[in-house]
Simulated assay, not measured.
Amino acid sequence: MKKLIIIPAYNESSNIEKTVEAIKEEAPEFDYVIINDCSTDNTRQICENHHYNIVNLPINLGIGGAVQTGYRYGYEEGYDLAVQVDGDGQHDPKFLDEMAKYLESHNLDMVIGSRFINKEGFQSSGARRLGIKYFTVLIKILTGAKITDPTSGLRMVNRDVMKIFAYDYPKDYPEPESVVAILRQKKKVEEIPVIMKAREGGVSSISPKKSVYYMIKVTLAILIERIRK
């Protein structure tokens, strides 16, 4: 199987080298592509100096647009599965082989790495955990599926879902919305336990000031997705 790691990166100069080198060490059977979302720091220079596989976006598209670019790349390059690994160092690539085997052996369309099954490693802040639980309940009500970590970016998909996401993917804070979208299409989604790390550098795209907007925006997007089809 051809397996691709999608690394969305915006101003990740303090993390990107460690992220790629960890992938090379822990997941050597995976290819990777860095989607540089028009970073204003020296993320691009670091990647080019190290001859990393990189796609440089001409304008900043946000996390959704960057990840969608990665799915489009993966689909058009003939990959069988793709997994998002954030460029901030939070996702541990040592779990990727296990996720790929689980995806294939259970005939799934998506497998999500959840930090809340075994409750090990970095668990996020208390306020964010409340928000995550809110989305878990909302998704359960709307789809019947229990997703313990609906905001997890560590998600692996097969080629069918890769094609869907290559041409239709939410633009802002896409994880909960995109999970609902494929559950609505009767795709099979499960979670496995993983251990995540605290961000080692850079700044999260979701600041405390943006949290209220995030909750309202994603809730409305999920509700619209629920009635769209």
Rank of each mutant, 00 (worst) to 15 (best):
Y134E: 06
R155K: 15
Y169N: 03
M156D: 05
A145H: 07
L142D: 08
D149E: 15
N158C: 11
K146Y: 01
F135R: 04
G144A: 08
R155P: 10
L130H: 05
K146Q: 07
T143W: 00
G153E: 11
A127Q: 12
I141L: 11
K140G: 14
L142S: 07
R159I: 00
N158L: 06
K146T: 11
R128Y: 15
D160G: 01
T151Y: 13
F165E: 01
T143C: 10
T151V: 15
R159F: 01
T148Y: 14
Y167P: 00
K133V: 07
L130D: 09
D168T: 12
D168N: 14
D149Q: 14
M162G: 03
L154Y: 12
A127S: 11
A166H: 11
A166V: 02
T143G: 10
A145F: 04
D168Y: 01
I132K: 07
S125K: 04
G144R: 08
T143H: 02
I139E: 09
T136S: 08
S124L: 12
R129V: 13
R129W: 10
K163M: 03
M162S: 07
V161D: 00
K133I: 13
G153T: 07
S125P: 04
T136P: 00
K146L: 02
I164N: 03
S152A: 10
F135I: 09
S152R: 09
R128C: 12
G126N: 15
I141K: 07
K146S: 06
I139P: 04
I164C: 03
K140D: 15
I164S: 05
F135M: 12
F135H: 09
T148H: 15
L142A: 06
P150A: 07
A166G: 13
D168L: 02
V137N: 09
F165R: 02
D149N: 14
D160I: 00
G131Y: 02
A145E: 14
I164M: 09
R128I: 14
D168S: 13
G126T: 15
T148F: 10
F135D: 13
N158E: 05
M156C: 12
K133A: 14
Y134N: 08
R129H: 09
I164Q: 07
K146M: 03
Y169D: 08
K140P: 03
T143R: 01
I139F: 00
A127C: 04
I147K: 06
S125M: 10
M162Y: 01
K140L: 12
